[in-house]
Amino acid sequence: MAAETKLSHTAAMILQAVNAGYVYGFSVMEMTGLPSGTVYPAMRRLERDELIRSSWEQQAIADAGQRPPRKYYKLTRSGKLTLEASRKRYPLLAKLIPSEQEEQV
């Protein structure tokens, strides 16, 4: 997917949330306040467009926590470029969902 891909505000928020460390669907929901019926389909589309990629948590880690393994999402290289472009388009994005480093600062 080209870096200049224009995302909707919702998609940009979700991308920003994933980048900020909210790496599974429910945490993105909690962070953005969006319902599950919006967040999960949007994440599917972002993954289809190769802006994020998913991976399953190791079974051993999930077993240690006595819970089912979760599916984690992570930004791809083109996802980061697209997010950069989206931040310029939506200047408040970074303020709405500050990334972990920004929070520490």
Binding site: P35, S36, G37, T38, Y40, R44, R48
Partner: peptide, 17 residues
């Protein structure tokens, strides 16, 4: 339940995709 209801649009979007 509201969370679970979100599974329907997700499934439909998945199907379309």
């Amino acid at each position: 339940a509201a969370f679970c209801l979100g599974a329907l649009p997700d499934a439909l979007s998945f199907r379309e995709q």
